[in-house]
Design a protein around this nucleic acid. Sequence first.
DNA 1: AGGGCTGCGAGACTGGTTCTCATCTAGACT
DNA 2: AGTCTAGATGAGAACCAGTCTCGCAGCCCT
Lengths: 157, 157
Amino acid sequence: MEPHAHSHSHLHPSLDWQQHTLATLSDAGHRKGGARNAVVELLAAQDCALTAQEIDDRLRDGGRAVGRASVYRVLELLTELRLVQKIEVGQGIARYERHQPDGDHHHHLVCDNCGTIEPFEDPSLEEAIEQVSRRLSFAVDEHDVVLHGACSDCREQ
Amino acid sequence: MEPHAHSHSHLHPSLDWQQHTLATLSDAGHRKGGARNAVVELLAAQDCALTAQEIDDRLRDGGRAVGRASVYRVLELLTELRLVQKIEVGQGIARYERHQPDGDHHHHLVCDNCGTIEPFEDPSLEEAIEQVSRRLSFAVDEHDVVLHGACSDCREQ
DNA sequence: AGGGCTGCGAGACTGGTTCTCATCTAGACT
DNA sequence: AGTCTAGATGAGAACCAGTCTCGCAGCCCT
Ligand SMILES: [Mn+2]
Ligand SMILES: [Mn+2]
Ligand SMILES: [Zn+2]
Ligand SMILES: [Zn+2]
């Protein structure tokens, strides 16, 4: 018995995300546009965060070049709509990745030697952050956690 | 009975820090220099993190102008020696503050509206980070936690 | 099909940070 | 004290991620 194409399975979260994103954009009153579609499609295909530069390069290499301004515009819009997560990894560089529809999210390890990033998640860390946020005078609505160090490759010499 | 000047009291952590810093620099083989001293003295007098720009401005206003390059050089050196902590607050801006000699440290809230920062500390957050770090393949040696939101002033319109 | 408003992109611009290089100076050695 | 030299300093150029500007393109509604 082969799976039905129309079943709303959770086997393809990236497809789910892409459809959900396009629907959300449409609901928010945005028209369709080539640049936006290209960026969304690219982000949907990634498992972890990309820089704006990487997005620009990959689109160009893929034959669908997009203006720099559009890349940033789309990323800003998607971030506002909470469809992507913006991650500041230091040195003035930001990375972007899709937010999981189920609200899950992860944080990152950055290798300060080779620049590799690796995701991790930890419920008790999230819990600790939530508790701190509650007792502060700020209205906290986002948190960045970045662990810096050496990846397994770079550690051994 | 007045306190002895030579007693190594813990009543003036900033003085302790300044002396410790100058000693560490000397031990590491660095000569004395006016720019470095000026930056160290300024950092010693602060309770929370400053941007490079703020450091530059305050030194100029204080009649001890220092070259921009020197400010960054000193901050980089002190960061390498773990004498100051570099904090990335987003938008490509970094802030710097002295590391407490006792190893204590705090993290920051950033108001995304007006840029104000406010320190906070939380042992259970530190504990959570430590536990995560232990189970990962990376050799974690630093962590950044920045909470973004609206400060109490900006929250009420 | 027409018209208006949104989306788009080339390129100028910004601002924090880094680089370059000529000059200065701490401090070691005579 | 005078000399010497490597480290320290500072003015300004360069760099670069990110933002702005503005004229053109194309989506969508009638
Ligand atoms: Mn989290
Ligand atoms: Mn901490
Ligand atoms: Zn690495
Ligand atoms: Zn504020």
